[in-house]
Design a protein around this nucleic acid. Sequence first.
RNA 1: GAGUGCGUAGCUCAGUCGGUAGAGCACCUGACUUUUAAUCAGGUGGCCGAGGGUUCGAAUCCCUCCGCGCUCACCA
Length: 419
Amino acid sequence: MFMDIYDATGKVQIYTSKEHPEASVLEMLDMVDIGDIIGIKGTVRRTKRGELSVNTQEITMLAKALLPLPEKFHGLTDTDTKYRHREVDMIMTPETIQTFIKRSRIYETIRQLLISKGLLEVETPILQSIKGGAAAKPFITHHNTLDMDLFLRVAPELFLKRLIVGGLPGVFEFAKNFRNEGMDTTHNPEFTGLEMYLPYTDYNDMADLFEEIVRTACQAVNGTLQIEYDGKKFDLSKPFARVTMNDMIKKYAGVDFMAITSDEEARNAAKKLNVEVDEDADWGHSMAAVFEAKCEEHLIQPTIVMDHPKSMNPLCKTHRSEPRLVEQFEPYINGKEMGNAYTELTNPLDQRERFEAQVAAREAGDEEADMMDDDFVEALEHGLPPTGGMGIGMDRLIMFLTGNTSIRDVIAFPTMRKK
RNA sequence: GAGUGCGUAGCUCAGUCGGUAGAGCACCUGACUUUUAAUCAGGUGGCCGAGGGUUCGAAUCCCUCCGCGCUCACCA
């Protein structure tokens, strides 16, 4: 009688010899079903076929499986059951449990890397009275004792920068964020953003750090920097391309937005490319819209897209040589945005004006625009040193590093409709 | 939110032209005493996603709803 027993580390064969079977062992073997968790005591040896095997002298039932497992050969393929009962998916599908083992290792690796660079891991409020830090629609909840509505955070950014004002030498947070928006293969209503802020750096330093994080994490879980994803080959040992948004637009859409001086001209340039823009879209929004429509899909190999328009980035410092741009980059891999980084805006006067512009946009109907955050502006008035900051979409990074093409395959319990 | 495909046993799936529910695995019983998913025989197991309609008769055709996937839109 031969049997394989499994755990997360692999399988081992057990057997009972037919010449000297233990009565208690035979009795127990008769009771064991697929999915039971059992303890085995016995001597280890190799069988005639050379397989390492345990000659069983004692079996203990540690946990009896009351529910049957899915059939072994086909496994669990129903996506609904995989997501609603992830534990079953993990038991049945080696790739699934490997994904979550790798997810943990990626966190561990990045955490160690950032700590080694002198950053501190911190925690900031998830319940916030002002929605800030990103253009997104929030979830709203209510605190009974305070009789006050609160927002689930869409980003930890503003609180993290206040910790830099306070004097921490660099901070990071693996932040669960919540955005009340659509869902698809790259969006879950709750997702994890890794945000980090390091004083006396700028967005160029953040780009270096992005490359280092991706490489270190990839090496840790794949043991190599040459990986395949979505049928394409990626060599992460090569430097990531660094390009400007305008150069990408010139390349893929044939328009030089830096040569365009009016909002109207910019809108017309977008329309000419069949890119839809609002009637009152300014130069920056038109430029960003063209980039998203014409360029993103081409950015397969890791590409750091720098120097975005200013009007849509109220927390980012104006570009050192071009007043219409900000020192922002977004890294792309396989055509997907993997994060967002700034040379942070540190000037409180400028910050207040940018918030005021956001408030105006909000009053004009933009639900995603930021609210005025007086506490944050006041913090800046105490002095935020020149600081580089970056957010990375952990779920998307994990997708890329584990070969999964749906965000729901890397989140253990993705958001599901009530059944 | 829009388009589209799907939903039959615990799991993987058949189910023809509309004729009243099937297989394999799992589980139980018995035989077998051994190997790399799968030994043999027998058995248990179904609100055919839900509701309505057409029909003598619906898993099958029609409508509504629920859930999941994919594509698009918004976003990270």
